[in-house]
Design a protein around this nucleic acid. Sequence first.
DNA 1: AAACATGATGCCTTTCGGGTATTACTCGAT
DNA 2: ATCGAGTAATACCCGAAAGGCATCATGTTT
Lengths: 295, 295
Amino acid sequence: MFTFDQLAGFIAVAEELHFGRAAERLNMTQPPLSRQIQKLEKAIGTELLERDNRKVQLTPAGGAFLEEAKRLMALAARAPVTARRIATGRSGVLRIGFTAASGFSILGPLLEEVAEIIPDVDVDLQELVTGEQIEGLLTGRLDLGLARPPFDRDTFDSHLLYREAMMLAVPEGHRLARLTRPVEDADFKDEPLIMHSPTKATYFYDLVVKLLPIQHANVVHTVSQVLTMVSLVAARRGVAFVPHSATLLGLKGVEFLPIAGMDTEQPVELHAIWNRKLENPALRRLLQDLEFRAE
Amino acid sequence: MFTFDQLAGFIAVAEELHFGRAAERLNMTQPPLSRQIQKLEKAIGTELLERDNRKVQLTPAGGAFLEEAKRLMALAARAPVTARRIATGRSGVLRIGFTAASGFSILGPLLEEVAEIIPDVDVDLQELVTGEQIEGLLTGRLDLGLARPPFDRDTFDSHLLYREAMMLAVPEGHRLARLTRPVEDADFKDEPLIMHSPTKATYFYDLVVKLLPIQHANVVHTVSQVLTMVSLVAARRGVAFVPHSATLLGLKGVEFLPIAGMDTEQPVELHAIWNRKLENPALRRLLQDLEFRAE
DNA sequence: AAACATGATGCCTTTCGGGTATTACTCGAT
DNA sequence: ATCGAGTAATACCCGAAAGGCATCATGTTT
């Protein structure tokens, strides 16, 4: 195998067509350069330069090899730069998970900030429910999640991005939609209810149960995604408690009503979460510049 | 700058994620391999591998650099092969010049042979008159010419490809076309004549003057290319002496008549010619396999 | 024919890379 | 808590390789 020094030597001689000048350019003397080229030719297995004792010229093989040699040197020069850029988080890939609902509220502005802070980093977006995001962050398939509590504070660090109110989603023209005041507990105590799954949407389930007097006998469906929930409301299957950002889904046939107390309280939280052992330099740089470390 | 050995070492460790096994794969011991990687990292300017004393894993920068390293090694492995292929004439470029007339006769079959003998060589075809071909062969812009004598036998080697008769081209329906015997000297002594240029088509000019009793007073045009000549005949400007291969041009409005004696004599020669100092290995191989050296 | 230019070769010194032996550290088992 | 196994890093030595200087061989110019 040849060496990079031999390639550099060959390129210099091929361009100067003169061993002495090429040696000067390489800050060395002519004899070792001659031997370098000889070794290179031996390694390649063919003559690259035709030298009669007066002049030097490229053989056809030498001409082709010159191209390859230049490509090699260029690649060799670029590779460390790329590596350093990635190590310092200025380049690379950032894999962000987000829930369907967060996609309609915070994701857009967040991506704008990301593009500003680390413009050369490719962002890989994946719509995932909170549980899948946690899993992804643990196994390293994901760098940053936009998810809801709870999560293990020892493994994950987080930053509260967003608080919002809970709303009551009702079918268009529903009797409650005619109210001019916020909905109160008594208003929905007899309504058929589309409820969050206690296993797959634990956060919403617990939140609703904690904050509102739910009649479990009224539950007609149990679903895990807010989008599904709103679709079922549109299909007049019942009413549902959804985060304010669900209003941004733009589905026809649904109205969203404020619930008494919720507008000030805004109990629904969305967090940016990440694995404490920051393995992706791009994420490290992003968090630094977003000043997310203080929490 | 790093070395190819360091790259190979890094690739092995990155793939095995274990210094000992990687060293084994490289037929060396573990300690120098460790130092190799350290030097590589120092040369790159960033950590490529994360090793706690229990396990080894790639950093993001290391992952990216692994790709580059593999590309470099692949390129480095291919370059000498390419160079050797070119040096042995099995790859590369062969630049062939040809005259318009030869393009209609011998060029096709010749290219078929070329494709058979050196299939991976790119053929670069250029339509040039004999003089331009000579020039190209001298300056190295051309490897092989299909041209007509004379040329300098000291500089050029050649091989007679083709002999052909001279024909008389006449406009369609011309009185001589009604003859049932070959045309004789007396038949065209009063015909308006389209003649070869004595400077740009020396070969044909000399040949015609030598073989036939030309009335120079009859010359109405002097042209350098056979195609032009035949076009002028079709335009009824006169008659012309052209090589038999001109019949292959397929122009309408022209008839080609045999000339007494010419059918046996076939005085028009087409040669393959090349510079004796064979600089293109592909040409050397072609000539060997075509057995053109004997002449 | 002599002087010059240029690439190759001989010889010496220094540098560098690999091998063996050993160390330092971590993890898992007892 | 201690010991042993596993693994990467370090110390030290030796031989190969690379570079520099002096010189040679050869072809060109005057």
